[in-house]
Design a protein around this nucleic acid. Structure first.
Lengths: 230, 230
DNA sequence: AACATATAAATTGCATATCAATTTTAGATA
DNA sequence: TATCTAAAATTGATATGCAATTTATATGTT
């Protein structure tokens, strides 16, 4: 609340995560200013926030673009995620209270149900959410925020890959992980986390070739409230 | 290079790390604008960058202040550092090339020499630098940047603590760590990293009481090049 | 038609000036 | 001394202008 530029950066973030704004898309200051009905100054502030977050890349005198991470960067991001989650796993194992374990179990159950029901979208969402819950239970907001930022950047990666992989195995990992953690098998849990993320990256086949450049105005129009139909 | 606001945020960052700007210090937009001879808009952009970095806290309608992290936050930051460095340790152990090990050894040697020479300042600096080198050798820029950000925030913490602790033990840890890593004893290395950071935090006795509020102008004046003596 | 080039238009980055809303300061009052 | 009040300062945001640079367009040449 409060800051206009903060709101805007969050809206653009949502649009990127939802794949409405694709990597490489130009984010013209004037276009966004018109769209959100704010001054260019505010848009600039929003773009700076987004670029600090890694979702947007600013090039001097050329403007801001939705970031197009390289495969190398993808690997680095998942390695970073692995490190954080392994650390969280070590903290959680043994030290988590009953309510915490219950929340993890419930999440996995809901996820499994979504898989059974062939509700791919929900399963996907809950699958991502599992990692978020895991980290939240560590009760470390610093780690939580870094982790959330990395997760946002993975959305950027998913916009770049063509083929999907077998989610079933990956989703099953979550259940196994909770088992391992509750049994206090930290090392094995950490190993699972590593291979889990490794599998995700291996499923990423980036095709640098195609890049249908949808313009920002079109992509963002639906995110701005109706009354601002300038 | 290029962005004026980026330059300014970096200068302010240096001032904070050097303890010239202390936690709680008000960063008035007009004051900074006059000091750096830029418009308020540019200062605002710099402050946004700094707040994204966690070094500055912005309060609506009240302004920007150098962040004053709580003890809780200190613990969280060092836990986060632990996670990243443990992850890096796991990657490095066994996989690092000869040149890498040599760099670590050389760093530790220089550090030990500084301790022998009772050159506290240099030893302190090299001690911090060790962690930086360690992470750099992982060749993961994403992790490197997150780590660097956390390190910057620890500077903020050091500004808040009164008593210093025995650095000798902590600095010796670095040498032991390299030994363990080169011998492939990952688990022990990770355990050492955890206790190392734990010891640092334990040495932090925050005194929320005293807070000599030096004004930003005075603190930053020397950072601005001489010709801008407006 | 393909290519190079010169010109015009658009965009970025920054400065200045202005304004309402809010906060801070200073002063007057009890 | 404490409290309330009015003035000054600060923030958040807008609008406008301008130089530097980039992008697009039109022109001319091979």
């Amino acid at each position: 609340m409060g800051n206009r530029s903060d709101e805007i950066s969050k809206i653009v973030t949502r649009a990127i995560i939802s794949k409405d704004l694709l990597p490489g898309c130009k984010l013209s200051e004037q276009t966004l200013a018109d769209l959100f009905d704010v001054s260019r100054a505010v848009v600039r502030q929003a773009l700076i926030r987004l670029s600090d977050d890694g979702l947007v890349t600013m090039e001097r005198n050329k403007g801001a673009f939705v970031s197009r991470p390289s495969f190398r960067e993808a690997v680095e991001i998942y390695d970073a995620l692995t490190m954080l989650e392994q650390g969280v796993a070590a903290q959680l194992s043994g030290r988590l209270d009953a309510r915490g374990w219950s929340e993890l179990r419930q999440h996995v159950e809901r996820q499994n149900k979504a898989v059974e029901d062939k509700n791919d979208e929900l399963a996907d969402q809950l699958g991502s959410g599992f990692h978020e819950v895991l980290v939240r239970l560590s009760r470390n907001t610093v780690v939580q925020q870094m982790h959330a930022q990395l997760i946002r950047r993975t959305a950027l990666l998913r916009s770049l890959v063509s083929s999907r992989f077998d989610y079933c195995g990956l989703l099953h990992d979550h259940e196994v992980l909770v088992d391992l953690l509750e049994e206090g098998k930290v090392t094995e849990a950490q190993k699972l986390i590593a291979t889990h993320h490794n599998d995700v990256v291996k499923g990423y086949l980036m095709d640098d070739t195609s890049q249908l450049e949808i313009n920002a105005r079109e992509a963002l129009e639906r995110y701005v409230s109706k009354q601002n139909a300038a």
